[in-house]
């Protein structure tokens, strides 16, 4: 478990470092994700060494979103002022994305599953 956490935090750190050093437009944690995938593919990191820690974090990922949800209270004024574009934009766009993504995947999907 500890080894897995060290690896996850370590790869996040490497990702954040690369993002800053190279001034990349991609967030550091995504670079960390890509680096970890490469390390798994290259046999540098063994799958078993990150399984426990990764499963734990992914299982509780929704919990980590709650403080971000509470953060909405800071923006009640702004949301109240521009509630129509904010709410309609979010709802409409969410359904548009689901429709476009699902349809495209299904049309190109063949019978592979």
């Amino acid at each position: 478990m500890l080894q897995g956490l060290v690896l996850l935090f370590g790869f996040q750190f490497i990702g954040e470092l690369l993002a800053r050093l190279l001034d990349l437009p991609i967030p550091g944690n995504v670079i960390g994700l890509a680096m970890l995938l490469l390390a798994l593919a290259g046999g540098i990191v063994k799958e078993e060494s990150i399984t426990e820690a990764s499963d734990l974090l992914l299982k509780y990922m929704t919990l980590f979103f709650v403080p971000a949800g509470v953060g909405v209270m800071l923006y009640f004024d702004l949301i109240a002022r521009e509630w129509l574009p904010i709410i309609v934009g979010t709802v409409v766009s969410t359904f548009v994305v689901m429709a476009v993504t699902g349809w495209v995947e299904q049309l190109l999907g063949g019978d592979g599953d």
Binding site: L8, Q12, L33, L37, I50, F65
Partner: peptide, 19 residues
């Protein structure tokens, strides 16, 4: 809250596992 929110960072890295 920020401490819990911070854990989203390594959680993103952890998505490497299911992938």
């Amino acid at each position: 809250g920020d401490l819990l929110l911070f854990l989203l960072g390594p959680s993103v890295v952890a998505i490497a596992l299911p992938l």
